[in-house]
Simulated scan of single mutants.
Amino acid sequence: MKEYGEANHVPIINAKGLHVLTETVAQKRPRRVLEIGTAIGYSTLYIAANGADDVEIVTLELSDERADEAEGFIKRSRFAGQITIVRGDAGENILRQSGRFDLVFIDAAKGQYPDYFRKVYPLLAEDGVVIADNVLFRGYVRGSEPVPRRFRTIVKRLREYIGMVTENDEFRTEIHEDGDGLAVSWRYR
């Protein structure tokens, strides 16, 4: 999958982010997971392999082409019966979810992270964890370099997201700065 992703320019989680993701999932052992941004299912299958034995994953993907590719990879895995791909706009599809999620992994439209967080918050278990990839976006979010005009909205919203999870008393957040930045926010109530 990694070779396929690289050869076809599919944005998959980098090695350092994947290490933090799998370590966090293995520590949490979630039973219900919501993933926002499936791509080809690369991180989905790593989450499945490190979650609870009976993990159930709902993964949201906007692109039909990517969802088809993910379906192909997932069907060949031992987790096929535990993963549901929901196609369409993630912001709308989050609102169609019910029940509580032990873990939420956000790796989709970077400018939508604050909106995604607001929408998943009511669905997050009281001891749940939210992991968000690419929160430092090419070094611009915490860097001193001027932000190119085309990235200003994304950087502004990622800064807003980081503020949401670091200034909220219900969460303990660690920003892993390797790669493009990964935020791990543990909810404790």
Rank of each mutant, 00 (worst) to 15 (best):
G111F: 01
G111Y: 00
G111S: 14
G111W: 01
Q112H: 08
Y113K: 13
Y113H: 06
Y113D: 10
P114F: 11
D115E: 15
D115K: 15
D115Q: 14
Y116I: 06
F117C: 02
F117Q: 04
R118N: 12
K119V: 02
V120M: 06
Y121N: 13
Y121I: 03
Y121T: 12
P122F: 07
P122W: 01
P122Q: 13
P122K: 13
L123Y: 03
L123P: 02
L124S: 07
L124V: 08
A125W: 08
A125R: 09
E126I: 06
E126A: 14
D127A: 12
G128I: 07
V129H: 06
V129K: 07
V130Y: 01
V130D: 08
V130A: 07
V130W: 00
I131Q: 11
I131T: 09
I131L: 15
I131V: 15
A132F: 00
D133K: 06
N134K: 05
V135W: 01
V135L: 06
L136C: 05
L136P: 07
L136H: 03
L136A: 05
F137L: 00
F137N: 00
F137V: 00
F137P: 00
R138N: 13
R138Q: 15
V141L: 01
R142Y: 04
R142D: 05
R142G: 09
R142C: 05
G143Y: 05
G143V: 11
G143P: 04
S144E: 14
S144A: 13
E145Y: 03
E145F: 04
P146C: 12
P146A: 15
V147W: 02
V147L: 08
P148S: 11
P148A: 11
R150K: 15
R150H: 12
R150W: 05
R150Q: 13
F151W: 12
F151P: 02
F151E: 08
R152Y: 06
R152G: 03
I154V: 15
I154S: 03
I154G: 03
I154E: 01
V155Q: 00
V155A: 00
V155H: 00
K156R: 13
R157F: 04
R157C: 05
R157K: 15
L158S: 01
L158Q: 01
L158D: 00
L158A: 02
R159Y: 02
R159E: 05
R159W: 01
Y161S: 03
Y161C: 12
I162V: 15
G163P: 04
M164H: 06
M164K: 02
V165R: 04
T166I: 03
E167R: 13
E167C: 09
E167S: 12
N168A: 14
N168Y: 03
D169K: 12
D169S: 13
D169V: 11
D169A: 14
E170M: 11
E170T: 06
F171Q: 11
R172Y: 09
R172P: 00
R172N: 07
T173M: 07
E174A: 14
I175K: 02
I175Q: 03
I175H: 00
I175T: 11
H176W: 14
E177L: 04
E177S: 10
D178P: 03
D178S: 14
D178T: 14
G179L: 13
G179E: 11
G179N: 12
G181A: 08
G181I: 04
G181T: 08
